[in-house]
């Protein structure tokens, strides 16, 4: 290079698809991390274990978690059982780890300062991180559902689906409803993921952020169990998580599903705007 090279323009050109590359980089990193892969492996083991347990000892109707008794008749129910089992603890755990780590992990290891001086503006970084966490959340739910479906199909076969209302629908409709269930769970967990991201902007200690995020779920579940607080139950973070059951009724109350989804997204919007404000004003000292 010679001095003449400094006639490079003062504003460097931006290449097309820059945000897509940033997002892909985020997802790529989360999928190359051994810890995250282990989390997905644990999640995939749950439907597998339930499937094998049911295969070895046929449960009666009404035993254990919802839908357990129906698995032997139709492997598709393993998807619903697995999601029912995973949604109170395992899925929030995974979402808590990934979202709690998102900003705090980078701050703690110092990589945040290098990302910001690349530069990735803070707003861009938050959006890319949010999409990355959302992608991983969706992936976690999909892993449970797909492993459940495959395990159920292999061990028990698939067939027509008896809904909670007692009516029977075709396998195709049943699969569509399973898709609706999974999508709803993803949206529900996204509210939590956004909370985790906000908490993640508050600290440089990723473990603390993860623990606090998971604590958020526990506090919400606890408040939900106190009957004296029934007035606020409807707006609690975790209250409508099991609302996916709506997809398994004969007459799906679309308005209710949309209302609950709107609540999850409202949580996400508030948490993300808090995260944005915090990140904007954050001093990066690590």
């Amino acid at each position: 290079m010679s001095f003449a090279d400094l006639t490079l323009p003062v504003v460097r050109p931006r290449y097309r698809g820059a945000f897509w590359r940033l997002y892909k980089g985020e997802v790529g990193i989360s999928l190359r991390r051994r810890r995250n892969l282990a989390l997905l492996a644990v999640l995939s083991a749950i439907p597998l274990m339930i499937g094998i347990a049911v295969y070895l000892s046929t449960p009666r109707a009404g035993d254990g978690p919802a839908f357990l008794g129906q698995i032997t008749g139709n492997g598709l129910f393993l998807v619903f059982t697995a999601l029912t089992v995973c949604i109170p603890v395992f899925l929030p755990l995974v979402v808590g780890v990934v979202s709690g780590d998102s900003i705090a992990g980078e701050a703690g290891s110092g990589t945040l300062r290098y990302l910001l001086t690349v530069p990735v503006t803070r707003t861009r970084l938050l959006v890319a991180k949010t999409l990355g966490v959302a992608t991983f959340t969706a992936l976690a739910v999909a892993v449970v559902a797909v492993v459940g479906l495959v395990t159920g199909a292999v061990l028990f076969g698939l067939g027509n689906v008896t809904l909670l209302s007692g009516d029977t629908v075709s396998l195709g409709t049943g699969l569509l409803r399973a898709l609706g269930v999974s999508a709803y769970v993803m949206v529900a967990l996204f509210g939590l993921a956004a909370g985790g991201m906000f908490i993640s902007t508050l600290t440089e200690n990723a473990i603390a952020a993860m623990a606090t995020t998971i604590g958020l779920v526990m506090v919400s579940a606890l408040l939900d169990a106190v009957p004296q607080l029934s007035a606020i139950h409807g707006v609690l973070l975790t209250h409508n998580w099991l609302g996916f059951g709506e997809f398994l009724r004969s007459n799906v109350d679309t308005a209710a599903v949309l209302r609950w989804s709107a609540l999850h997204l409202a949580y996400a919007a508030v948490f993300l705007s808090l995260a944005w404000a915090r990140l904007q004003s954050k001093d990066v000292t690590s």
Binding site: L8, R12, I29, S109, G110, R113, T117, V118, P119
Partner: peptide
């Protein structure tokens, strides 16, 4: 910041990578 920093290389308080 978004216009200036692409032209600036920085090493701040030691390296930090994944």
């Amino acid at each position: 910041l978004a216009q200036v920093l692409p032209r600036v290389g920085a090493l701040i308080e030691g390296p930090a990578f994944h």
